[in-house]
């Protein structure tokens, strides 16, 4: 994973895991790596990973089993709802940027098709 050095790392990792949960790379109910394991994989301070998991928990994406670690929540409806909300928010953000440079939605859609090769 590539990090921007001027944004809190725990946000960057939490965002990445959030997307992986929505994308299915982390399945519903799946166990997440331990704090040290993930720290080792990403080369970051374990304290940072503690913050990552706190953040994901507060976003409602994972839960703590007091004895055995962290798991993706198993509630499919809940994840689907959060995913829809994520899509909505990101699209609105993106659209407001694009509208600022005076590009119409039609033009934007054409551009998306062009880039995606359709």
């Amino acid at each position: 994973m590539y990090f921007k050095n001027n944004r809190p790392v725990f946000y960057q990792i939490a965002d990445d895991i959030e997307r992986k949960i929505y994308g299915g790379e982390y399945a519903l109910g799946q166990k997440l790596p331990s704090i040290r394991e993930l720290g080792l994989t990403l080369g970051v301070n374990p304290n940072t990973i503690v913050h990552v998991y706190d953040e994901l928990e507060s976003r409602g994406l994972i839960r703590t089993e007091s004895t055995s670690g962290k798991y993706v929540v198993s509630d499919e409806k809940k994840i689907e709802g959060l995913k829809r909300k994520y899509l909505e928010e990101r699209t609105r953000e993106f659209l407001s940027d694009i509208k600022e440079i005076n590009i119409s939605v039609d033009e934007l859609i054409l551009k998306i098709y062009e880039i995606e090769g359709k």
Partner: peptide
């Protein structure tokens, strides 16, 4: 370090 990055600096 996370506070430093929060303010947009490396």
């Amino acid at each position: 370090c996370e506070r430093i990055r929060e303010s947009g600096d490396t």
